[in-house]
C-alpha cells in the first residue's frame, strides 16, 4: 500500500493535466489523504462520506475541476497498479470503486 501511495502521488504531481490542483498543498497531509483514497479504492474501510468528498473538492471545482481531470486521476491510478503487477480484472474493480465517487468529487 505504501509503495502504491508513493508511485501514485508522484504521478499526480508530475501530470501536467492535474498537477496545478496540488500547488501549495501540505504534502504530508495530501499523502495521508491519498492513502485513505487508495485504501477505499482497494475495497478497504471507507472513511469518506459523499458529503466529505463534495466539501473537500469544492474549492477545486471552482478552479475548474471537471471530468477530464477525474479521468486523468483514474488513469494514473490504473497505471500505478499496473506498474505494481496488479492483474487487469482487479484494476477494473478498483477503477469502478473510484468511479463511484465521480458525482460527489465534481459536485454534481
Amino acid at each position: 500500500m505504501e509503495a502504491a501511495v508513493d508511485i501514485f502521488y508522484r504521478k499526480v504531481l508530475t501530470d501536467g493535466r492535474i498537477s496545478h490542483f496540488f500547488d501549495g498543498v501540505d504534502m504530508d497531509r495530501q499523502r495521508a489523504k491519498q492513502k485513505a483514497f487508495l485504501t477505499m479504492a482497494f475495497g478497504g474501510p471507507n472513511s469518506y462520506s459523499g458529503q466529505d468528498m463534495r466539501t473537500a473538492h469544492a474549492r477545486l471545482v471552482t478552479m475548474g475541476l471537471n471530468d477530464s481531470h477525474f479521468d486523468a486521476v483514474v488513469e494514473l491510478l490504473g497505471g500505478t497498479l499496473a506498474e505494481l503487477g496488479v492483474p487487469a480484472n482487479l484494476i477494473g474493480q478498483v477503477a469502478a470503486i473510484a468511479e463511484s465517487t465521480r458525482k460527489d468529487v465534481l459536485g454534481r
Binding site: 508513493d6 502521488y9 508522484r10 504531481l13 508530475t14 501549495g24 504534502m27 504530508d28 499523502r31
Partner: peptide
C-alpha cells in the same frame, strides 16, 4: 523548503 521537499520526493525519496 517546499520546492526541495517536492523535488526530492519526485526523485525517489520517501516522503
Amino acid at each position: 523548503v517546499q520546492t526541495l521537499k517536492k523535488k526530492l520526493f519526485l526523485q525517489g525519496l520517501d516522503l
